[in-house]
Design a protein around this nucleic acid. Structure first.
Length: 619
RNA sequence: GGUCCAAUGGCGCAAUUGGUUAGCGUACCUCCCUGUCACGGAGGGGGUUGCGGGUUCGAGUCCCGUUUGGACCGCCA
């Protein structure tokens, strides 16, 4: 099929040209003797005009029919400034229907009214919408720009396996049963972390990969089970060199894709600062409302929540919201949000005509109230939201409220791009559930040289050469320098509470590799989907992924995940245990040689014959 | 694992809070119209309200269960 031009590219300069076009009928407008059709391809829309000789043929043409058209480009009588092609139209000489279309279940236009679930079900039609095409084309440009930069900086693109070994720590693995070795499993990579470090040991020096990664955790609007990371690792560069190279890469990206010059170097703030000032390790600094510390104002307060907090060495922090007078109901909602975010409660003051009001006013002295007004610098018509709790809890909860209120008040400007680095992350965090220190990043993260003595005395205070790249309150990516000395690595495992045997069991091949001249190295990974999401100006990661999963990890179109044939299960020597009743039956069969994972996580041994018998007994 | 919200023609919503034949927009079909571009005008077809049970003279509306979807917390970098 011949085509001379793409529809969206035609301009007044093409006037008089004979063109041959292909496209879908986006809209048909009929005027008795006269007909217009908006013909759409991936580049845009152009208007076709037909005289009355086509009336009979056009009767058969409906929305989303695919047409092949020959005609002449002419200047329009009435131009449409809304369309890039609005100055011209195609006077059709002849056309054919290439293919017909059923009536589509959703309207194929940017302003479709279909809900996301319906769009997912007919994703192939949803992706015909110009805005979706624009998003995916932009995503492709992003990849192109990043690849260009890395290729020009002597990086080698290397693929690592999708079927790998399950590693403990971090997110839950997706498991793939091995047919060749029944009872064993591959794991899909959460990231190519170990492989990329091994590639440094191999001497590649600079590696990158657009890597599909998998995490079997619950989804969110900005989180998918399988997603794409730009994975990067380098040897011999220090933290500063890595960050500034990445800044150059992102600067080029913003220029290539958005045509925007962003200033470098990016703002750098320590994790402590970010938590203290923004209550988040991925601060959005496009707006103010920074967290303030009011602890010293209330050291002798009689107000019970404050008094308790002071006694427990906690902090009293707050944010000031301008032009904010929440109703009692809104205050109630804010308070329950604060509880949701882990705080004990929320104290709200409204400031109007030189006086604070709010339920806590009567419990505080006039001196304390005056001091609060002065210290917070609250303006008339504003409000102060305060939380008293342990430092991290108070910061986290206030940071989340700060975010919510900014969204509510429309303070997040989608056209502003604020990049920054959060650095010096803590090495460990205390796990209440496991009652031990766990890695905040991963156990190969390099602790700050000066903090190494603290590993013995106060692990919670050890900071690392780990860094996160943050854009508009989203974590774009993160990474670290890695440990390359055996002694230090052993020490970290010791703090994490692993015995040498456990370490060998969990990370054996990886630890062994480190004994062969490992170079100092470090790297990071960027979430490609999130980058695309923010640059496309959407709130949902699903708008920049061609075929995403919904919030419950399903694909409404293909209906994955699905059940499989018994034959397939038999080949894998797997059986499915649905509920307690069936589990009891299996247990009753007793003994055997096939491990069966029960729905409660417990594993029992059963023979295949026994399972077959049990299945028959079920029928 | 938890909390909250929703489910009504193809699609998106409404139904005066338990009361006549479930309504609107859009899409669809037919006809009219030579400059529209969210074209306009006239007419038409299409739903028994996710599923199961209950309360009631009467249920889209109330209750219980269930399924599906969404937001968030936990989880996840």
């Amino acid at each position: 099929m011949n085509r001379s031009h793409y529809n969206g590219t035609l301009r007044l300069s093409n006037q008089g040209e004979a063109v041959e076009l292909i496209g879908w009928v986006s809209k048909k407008r009929n005027f008795g003797a006269m007909n217009f059709i908006d013909l759409r391809d991936r580049t845009g829309i152009v208007q076709l005009v037909f005289d009355e000789s086509f009336n009979a043929q056009l009767k058969d043409v409906r929305q989303e029919y695919l047409l092949h058209v020959k005609g002449l480009v002419e200047e329009r009588k009435d131009k449409n400034p809304q369309l890039p092609t609005g100055e011209i139209e195609i006077v059709v000489k002849e056309f054919e229907i290439v293919n017909s279309s059923k009536v589509t279940p959703i309207i194929i236009a940017d302003e479709t009214d279909a809900l996301e679930d319906t769009r997912m079900k007919y994703r192939y039609l949803d992706l015909r919408r110009p805005v979706m095409q624009k998003n995916l084309i932009m995503r492709s440009k992003i990849v192109q720009s990043l690849r260009e930069f890395l290729d020009h900086h002597d990086f080698t693109e290397i693929e690592t396996p999708v079927l790998g070994r399950s590693t403990p720590e971090g997110a839950r693995d997706f498991l793939v049963p091995s047919r060749v070795h029944p009872g064993t499993f591959y794991a899909l990579p959460q990231s190519p972390q170990l492989y990329k470090q091994l590639l440094m040991i191999s001497g590649f020096e600079r590696y990158y990969q657009f890597a599909r990664c998998f995490r079997d955790e619950d989804l969110r609007a900005d989180r998918q089970t399988d997603f794409t990371q730009l994975d990067i690792e380098t040897s011999f560069l220090d933290e500063n060199q890595i960050l500034s190279m990445m800044e150059d890469m992102l600067k080029k990206l913003m220029k290539d894709v958005k045509g925007i010059d962003i200033p470098t170097p990016f703002l750098r703030m320590t994790w402590n600062e970010a938590m203290d000032k923004y209550g988040s390790d991925k601060p959005d600094n496009r707006f103010g409302m920074e967290l303030q510390d009011f602890t010293n104002l209330f050291e002798h307060s009689e107000f019970v929540p404050f008094k308790n907090t002071i006694e427990n060495k906690g902090v009293i922090k707050g944010i000031v919201v301008e032009d904010f007078a929440p109703s009692n109901k809104e205050i109630k909602n804010l308070t329950s949000d604060a509880r949701k975010y882990g705080a004990n409660g929320l104290v709200v003051f409204k400031y109007k005509d030189g006086a604070l009001s709010g339920s806590a006013v009567k419990s505080l002295s006039q001196e304390e109230l005056d001091a609060l007004v002065a210290a917070s610098n609250v303006q008339d018509g504003g409000a102060i939201l305060m939380i008293s709790d342990a430092w991290l809890k108070a910061c986290n909860a206030l940071g989340s409220l700060r975010n919510d209120i900014a969204s509510l008040k429309g303070l997040k400007n989608k056209d502003e791009f604020s990049f920054l680095w959060v650095v010096d992350f803590p090495m460990f965090e205390w796990s209440e559930t496991e009652n031990r220190w766990v890695s905040q990043h991963h156990p190969f993260t390099m602790p700050k040289r000066e903090d190494i003595p603290l590993l013995d005395t106060n692990p919670g205070e050890v900071k690392t050469n780990a860094y996160d790249c943050v854009l508009n309150g989203y974590e774009l990516g993160g990474g670290s320098l890695r440990i390359y000395e055996q002694d230090l690595q052993d020490k970290i495992f010791e703090v994490l509470g692993f015995t040498p045997e456990q370490t060998q069991e969990k990370f054996g091949f990886f630890i062994d590799a480190f004994q062969y001249g490992t170079p100092p190295h470090g790297g990071l990974a960027f979430g490609l989907d999130r980058i695309a999401m923010i640059l496309a100006g959407t709130d949902s990661i699903r708008d920049v992924i061609a075929f995403p999963k919904n919030a419950s990890a399903r694909d409404p179109m293909s209906e994955a995940p699905n059940t499989v044939d018994d034959v397939q299960l038999d080949e894998l020597e797997l059986a499915i245990c649905i509920d307690d009743k069936q589990r009891d039956m299996l247990t009753a069969i007793q003994a055997g040689n096939v491990p069966v994972q029960l729905s409660n996580g417990e594993t029992i041994q059963v023979s295949l014959d026994e399972i077959r018998q049990w299945k028959e007994s079920q029928n």
